[in-house]
Design a protein around this nucleic acid. Structure first.
Lengths: 208, 208, 208, 208
DNA sequence: GATGAATGAGGCTTCATTCAT
DNA sequence: GATGAATGAAGCCTCATTCAT
């Protein structure tokens, strides 16, 4: 879980919360579009209509912006996931709910998800971003557990390679952030439905 | 299709082809591991046991290495894809063959695929990398066409949103590059089989 | 001959030893003249006839230059001091030798001494420069011990406040770095003699 | 003599004199502890419990604070020195009085003295701080004159190198600002006595 | 084929300062 | 008297690239 209270940081980093949020949204957009490394602080500032140095009144560093974006996203994601996991649903319903919440999160935090997809892997090596790794482990446990429960309950096919399936499902969901556009043709729920239909029933037509 | 022959390069950049290949493989590895932007020429040189400047005897620029890696990968990929697409197979068999070839390509050119995944989107905007966009369009045509043929032939479900399905399938295949390790537990063919089984039949268990 | 032992250091920082020495001497001069903080990397580079960035081929950072200057100076100083302290001299002779060696060191490493004087106090708080504090403690022990030995041996006046005297003596010696010019009217040995005469005999004229 | 009245300052910079004094004392403390260059306006403001920008209501600039601190200190110092020099004392008594007043000044204005010690040399080059150089010249004249008078009057040893002695004495007195702590074991007068005893009589024990 | 040294552009960050409120 | 937000210059450092040897 990310940072909490911060007592004696150089820059108290408070400022009006709305302005911060605004700036973070802008930063997230640029990060998502160009990649974190390729994004210069000046590009963010340009997009915000200020000078590069002025960003440092609000944030400690370029990295701290990234940090705030990612941890904010994960915090919210886990609030939803935990609600689902604690609801006592069956494995199939859990899977459906997780997938649906995931697409909703993509809808809400598209940029953060896109950044997470592109950067989390190599960020995970930095101690400051250890929470990304932790989150990913919780993630794996939640999804793997659901699949295993489903196999045990004879809701999912017994011949599944659960780990492989987990990876397929996980990646396909999140990678949707690379093409999804909020307000487009499909609502997140619609995409979730289509996706679940494919994963659960397959795309082949069965003459039954 | 990408660059052809080095016609007007300042530095004739000949050097033994094997050494080039070696160095490209090293570069691809570092690019894949750290991202293109975050990879410094010095890191590549370090990994190759030489000094940064020395790389410029073999290559014109850092970008030209990336270019060579990506175009080499795409050239090979399309040779395989074209063979499949020209073989006169039915839609389901075509899908199976494309998926299988894709996983094989991941097995052979893991680093290139990983780089392609991470960088192709923003590289596509640069004129020099227009071939990435072209390739992606050919790609879409091949997969979409196969899916549509399958729906028409009543091999795939009639209620599929073909574009959505295309994206799901495409992403799931390629994103495997982020976790696949050559020489690991599963052969590419095995992964392809599992994956196709999921996509074609679904993961739900049906009491028939 | 490039990198040798250092396995994964970013910059192996070897380069021709003479060039390093040259550049360090230039840096020391500028640091001494303007103060470490007020010295910009560009000023050093200007003085060396190169661009600011080029310094980073030879050194890791501005601070590492300072570090190398100071530790080089202290290493040499302690070699001389240790020789004196291990020579088995009486307290007065020890004092004379320490003072003389100190002025010689000022003559040899004027800039380093000047920097040490101005910066060591606030640098000491940084963990990286802990050796400055250690050195200063060894220093104190050597001088204090000599004074105490002298009082016990009735070579120095019994009413001395030894700590106060230590500070006076120490400061007077080192502060000379702020006005001493090598090659000027007085040789280091001459200055040492005058200084010792004052400290040992006083400046008052006694009718004996 | 330093600046006089604020004639042409943009900001009339009046504010309650006590508040100014308070803020100047805080600034002096930080300047002394960290060095002028290394002291940011924000550090001063932090120490004063306000924001950096707010200081500009009271002062024109960071430099003007330094200026006021140093000129205030020198004004007071010279008031005392002039009193001593005009009192018609003999050379030895003059020396004793100057030393004593100096240590008293260190006691009263420790921070200003410390700043003066560290910064006056390189500040002297700036036209705005020319008064530092003037002061130093007056200083030299006063001390050198006293020593020379003493030699002529056979109060000090005839073999003294007067300039060297001047430097030794001057430096040792002022450098005490680097270790002196007001309210510590020794009063300024006590330190002066010890110091004068050492300088006048020497530390060697004479069997007479 | 490779090294060593340098260039020059550009990146992140700091900081004195300003100014409307 | 003070705050909050911003400016703009400057600082340290990185890095792709060049080139004489």
């Amino acid at each position: 879980m990310p940072k909490s209270s911060d007592s004696d940081h150089k820059k108290t980093t408070v400022s009006a919360p709305e302005r911060r949020e605004e700036l973070l949204a802008i930063a997230a957009q640029v990060f998502a579009a160009q990649g974190y490394n390729a994004t210069t602080v000046r590009k963010i500032a340009d997009a915000a209509g200020m000078l590069a140095g002025s960003l440092y009144y609000h944030f400690d560093s370029k990295e701290s912006m990234l940090d705030e974006i990612l941890s904010g996203f994960l915090d919210e994601l886990w609030a939803r996931y935990d609600a689902v996991l604690g609801a006592g649903l069956g494995p199939r319903e859990t899977l459906e709910a997780l997938v649906t919440e995931s697409f909703r999160e993509i809808d809400r935090h598209l940029d953060a998800v896109a950044i997470y997809q592109k950067e989390s892997k190599h960020l995970g090596t930095q101690p400051h971003f250890a929470y990304l790794v932790e989150s990913q482990q919780k993630f794996e446990k939640a999804w793997l557990g659901t699949l295993e429960r489903g196999v045990a309950a004879k809701v999912f096919r017994p011949d599944l390679d659960v780990r492989l399936t987990y990876r397929f499902v996980r990646d396909t969901v999140w990678v949707a952030a690379s093409w999804y556009r909020p307000g487009g043709r499909h609502s997140p729920e619609e995409i979730a439905r289509q996706y679940l239909s494919m994963v659960l029933e397959g795309i082949a037509l069965h003459d039954s």
